Amino acid sequence: MILVTGATGTVGREVLRSLPAGPLVRVLARRPERVTPTATTEIVQGEYGDPRSLARALRGVTAVFLVTDCVGEDDAGFLRAARRAGVQHVVKLSAAAVEDPHADDPITARQRRNEHLLRTSGMQWTLLRPRSFMSNTLSWATSVRTEHVVRALYGSSANACVDPRDIADVAVRALTLPGLRGQVCTLTGPRAVSAVEQTAQLAELLGRPLRFEELEPARARALWSERHSAPVVEALLHSAQRQRDGAKARVENTVAQLVGRPPRSFRDWAAAHLPAFTPS
């Protein structure tokens, strides 16, 4: 049996959708009503801080797709429960920033600690380290629909962002086939792309002009503070500075090697999500 956590999130939702028919899949969810189940999905209501719900969710599970909150949750309690339950393999969603020694913000430091906890847990493991999600650009949707504008920090800096569907495809391979145990998989798109280029591609797909507006760091901090806690805001600013310095432009061939096709481009992702950017 496979347990999927984070099944209502960006990647977990795609993992649940992409798992092949046949094996029983269980989902651990705080809000089960938000999960879109398949015919072979069993849903357990619970959360990482509740040992009883963890025990219920992990009973009979051999492999786990693990997603934990980048701010408030360590993996220690979950991994202890998984090992007690006899779980053999954990596929963990991490981040490419972990391998960058200049990424010293609290969120990346927590991800490094959680990776270490898994590596030393006594269970087999696979680490997925994606670059930024292409879906992060959904934060532009309202301004694109209502103002025909994209606002971003360091708009000419490049990021080898990745389609969450490609992350999910690699995760499914790791969960269902043995070859990726003990492997670290850094996942990127096919080329690094800047926010200015993304704006131009969206405009072309939408068939209408869009304007790019460069944000100053102080303005970005103020906007992000409306939606995120202070530690997350500072981590985002630090991440943007690293991107400005070229830290996120490197392209890896991992997706193609593991799933047998090229990774999807930002244009591919945007075409599939165009309704989000289209006025009613």
Rank of each mutant, 00 (worst) to 15 (best):
P130D: 14
P130W: 00
R131A: 15
R131T: 14
S132M: 15
F133Q: 14
F133I: 00
S135H: 04
S135A: 15
S135Y: 01
N136D: 14
N136K: 11
T137S: 14
S139V: 13
W140C: 01
A141M: 14
T142F: 15
T142G: 12
T142N: 11
S143R: 11
S143N: 12
S143D: 15
V144I: 09
V144D: 04
R145F: 00
T146S: 14
T146I: 05
H148T: 02
R151G: 09
A152E: 12
L153K: 01
Y154G: 13
Y154E: 13
G155Q: 10
S157R: 03
N159F: 12
A160C: 02
A160D: 01
A160K: 03
C161E: 03
I167A: 05
A168D: 03
A168T: 08
V172I: 11
V172R: 06
V172T: 09
V172D: 07
V172A: 07
A174F: 04
A174W: 07
A174R: 08
L175D: 02
L177G: 13
P178V: 00
P178C: 00
G179Q: 15
G179C: 07
G179V: 10
L180Q: 04
R181C: 09
R181G: 02
R181S: 08
G182M: 07
G182F: 07
G182L: 08
Q183N: 01
Q183T: 13
Q183G: 00
Q183E: 06
Q183S: 07
C185D: 04
T186M: 11
T188E: 04
G189F: 10
P190Y: 02
R191S: 11
R191I: 04
A192M: 06
S194N: 06
S194F: 03
S194V: 12
A195H: 15
A195Y: 15
A195V: 13
V196G: 06
E197K: 05
T199E: 01
L202E: 14
E204C: 05
L206D: 13
G207C: 07
R208C: 10
L210P: 10
L210A: 04
L210D: 12
R211S: 11
F212K: 03
F212Y: 08
F212P: 11
F212C: 08
E214A: 15
E214N: 08
E216N: 02
E216W: 03
P217A: 02
A218M: 02
A218L: 13
A218H: 12
R219G: 10
A220N: 02
A220Q: 09
R221N: 07
R221D: 06
A222R: 14
L223Y: 02
L223N: 09
W224E: 11
W224F: 09
S225A: 01
R227S: 08
R227G: 05
H228S: 09
H228T: 03
A230C: 07
A230H: 06
A230W: 07
A230V: 11
P231E: 07
V232G: 06
V232F: 10
V232Q: 10
H238F: 00
A240G: 13
A240E: 14
Q243D: 08
Q243G: 11
R244G: 08
R244E: 12
G246N: 07
G246S: 06
A247E: 10
K248H: 14
R250D: 12
R250W: 03
V251C: 04
V251G: 09
E252Y: 11
N253W: 03
T254R: 01
V255I: 15
A256Q: 15
A256L: 05
A256P: 10
L258K: 00
V259F: 12
V259Q: 04
V259Y: 10
G260H: 05
